[in-house]
Design a protein around this nucleic acid. Sequence first.
DNA 1: ATTATTTTGTGATTATCATCACATAATTTA
DNA 2: TAAATTATGTGATGATAATCACAAAATAAT
Lengths: 210, 210
Amino acid sequence: MREKLEKYYSFVFEKELIDEIVQVGVYKKLRENEILVDLGDKMKGIPLLLEGAIKIVREDKNGEEILLYFLERGDTCASSFASAISNGKCGIRATAEKESEIIFLPKEKLDEWMLKYKSWRTFVIESYNIRLNEMMETIDSLAFMNMSERLYKYLTDKAQIMRETSLNTTHQDIAYDMHTSRVVISRLLKQLENEGKIKLHRNKIEILEF
Amino acid sequence: MREKLEKYYSFVFEKELIDEIVQVGVYKKLRENEILVDLGDKMKGIPLLLEGAIKIVREDKNGEEILLYFLERGDTCASSFASAISNGKCGIRATAEKESEIIFLPKEKLDEWMLKYKSWRTFVIESYNIRLNEMMETIDSLAFMNMSERLYKYLTDKAQIMRETSLNTTHQDIAYDMHTSRVVISRLLKQLENEGKIKLHRNKIEILEF
DNA sequence: ATTATTTTGTGATTATCATCACATAATTTA
DNA sequence: TAAATTATGTGATGATAATCACAAAATAAT
């Protein structure tokens, strides 16, 4: 745990803070598709992502979903932070897109560290900042792009987060993330394939052009 | 300035912090439609809203706009905060929807106060939290609602922020905010009027049902 | 090996929204 | 007051995406 923490966070946190994190943080390994945070959960702390990829989705009353963004190593969940600090509920669901490793930080420390470590303050603000920008990108996609453009962005973004050029996924899964129907996705994928940007297989999409 | 600050912020900030704000804050009055922050601006501080209403919009490369959310008294601009702290650029435009009053806080104090005042830390985190939730609501609207529902939500939200039951606006202005065309808005407004939810006048929309 | 299930492909139809073209009404300006 | 400008109303048409219905292919289960 210390090893990976130092690998990804030594340029972010002071040595003393890393020591404290090692002391109070709880290491956890997440299986693929394991739910880390669910709708309405009250957070008792926040997760630091060491390895893997986490999908953050929003769900409305009717159970319809839309992808907000992905987290990768070095990231934390800003929604959890707010929820942990204010004892409020979390309005999102976080699911491991692949096997992932996290460190869970207890909420008691969150404010304490704000006083002690400049690097922690910067990290928290930076995290919020990054998340706000991700949300703006999501809004941009929804407001300004058509389905085909959104789909292509989805594929390339996800490939980058997963650090692979092929995605193991079905058309239906993509449709859920993008809040549309499988038929629509299948047709647009076929179109992207004809344009030479991707290659389709069963349960797998190769991305040829980034 | 101190008077309004105490009126709206005495339950948020400690007395000592309010004293400091009075000392270093710069009071400014904004005319209707005055631009407070523009795309790509680097912020030298953050605004605290004392009175009025500020519209925050996102703009893409082609100059197309979409409304993100409104700020009202007691709010601050989280995007500015991040921009000020990290010396980065601001990805939004903030415009006064009506005559407004703000206090501009210099960025040098932002981190200093994090150390000194618990209430400031809470305020900053809370502000980010509120903004994240607003963005999620915007995403919900875009992803899950049709134009008519979005329009009605726009009208009632804006009326609440403006603290009035009538909005002085044109169909074209609404179309800009919602990133659609005037024709679409006109038709949907007429429909809402037929449903008895609003009453249309030239340059004015009365909201009959909230 | 046969059956069942999952995944993908595709035509047809409909609904929503975007866009064009132009009319009418209200208000301002000259 | 006449002309220009701004705001709104409305029919027609097209594009995009949603939905239904069903076929075919690949894989998993019995």
